[in-house]
Amino acid sequence: MTATPQAQQASPVLPPVATPADARKLADGMLDTMNALLAVIERETELVRAGKIREGMALGKQKSELSRRYAGAISHFKRSQAYMTQSTPELLTALQRHHDTFRAILQVNLTVLATAHAVSEGIVRGVSAEAQRRAMPQTYTANGQRSAPPRQHTIPIAVSRSL
Results as ranks from 00 to 15, higher is better:
Lys78Ser: 14
Thr2Val: 02
Glu55Ala: 15
Arg103Cys: 06
Asn143Gln: 11
Leu163Asn: 07
Ala3Gly: 06
Lys25Ile: 00
Met57Phe: 03
Ser80His: 09
Asp22Leu: 06
Ala7Asp: 05
Ala71Trp: 04
Leu95Cys: 07
Tyr83Lys: 04
Ser128Gln: 09
Ala50Ile: 05
Pro20Gly: 10
Arg54Asn: 10
Asp22Ile: 00
Leu110Glu: 15
Thr2Lys: 07
Ser128Glu: 05
Gly144Arg: 03
Arg69Met: 10
Leu47Arg: 02
Gln9Ala: 14
Thr2Tyr: 03
Ala58Met: 11
Pro89Ala: 03
Arg68Leu: 11
Thr88Ser: 07
Arg133Met: 08
Thr115Glu: 15
Gly126His: 05
Leu106Arg: 11
Ala142Phe: 01
Thr154Ala: 02
Val13Leu: 10
Tyr140Phe: 14
Gln152Asn: 04
Lys61Ala: 13
Ile105Ala: 08
Gly56Gln: 12
Thr45Asp: 15
Ser147Asp: 13
Leu106Gly: 14
His153Lys: 01
Gly51Arg: 03
Glu46Asn: 12
Gln96Trp: 06
Thr19Phe: 07
Ala131Phe: 11
Arg97Pro: 03
Thr85Asn: 04
Arg69Thr: 10
Phe77Cys: 06
Thr115Arg: 01
Arg125Trp: 00
Leu47Trp: 01
Ala3Leu: 13
Met84His: 01
Arg69Val: 05
Ile157Cys: 04
Gln81Tyr: 12
Ala50Met: 07
Glu44Gly: 13
Thr19His: 09
Pro15Ser: 09
Leu95Arg: 11
Ile157Thr: 09
Lys78Glu: 15
Leu26Pro: 01
Arg161Val: 13
Ala129Thr: 05
His117Asp: 13
Gly56Ala: 09
Pro150Ala: 12
Ala114Asp: 15
Ala10Arg: 10
Pro15Met: 06
Gly72His: 10
Ala23Gln: 02
Ala82Tyr: 13
Gln9Arg: 13
Gly72Thr: 14
Thr115Ile: 06
Leu66Tyr: 01
Arg134Phe: 07
Ala131Ser: 08
Arg68Met: 08
His76Asp: 15
Arg49Tyr: 09
Met30Ala: 11
Ser11Val: 05
Arg103Val: 14
Thr93Ser: 10
Val159Tyr: 06
Ala7Cys: 01
Lys63Tyr: 09
Leu59Phe: 03
Ser147Phe: 00
Leu106Lys: 12
Gly29Met: 08
Arg161Gln: 06
Thr88His: 04
Leu91Asp: 15
Ile53Val: 12
Ile74Met: 10
Ala118Pro: 00
Glu55Asp: 15
Leu37Gln: 07
Leu31Pro: 00
Val159Ser: 05
Val127Gly: 00
Ile105Gly: 08
Glu130Ser: 06
Pro149Val: 02
Gln9Met: 09
Leu26Lys: 04
Arg69His: 11
Ala73Arg: 06
Lys25Leu: 01
Leu14Ile: 04
Thr19Ser: 14
Gly56Ile: 01
Gln6Ala: 07
His117Leu: 10
Lys78Thr: 14
Gln6Asp: 12
Thr88Met: 04
Leu37Lys: 02
Ala50Arg: 09
Pro5His: 08
Glu55Ile: 03
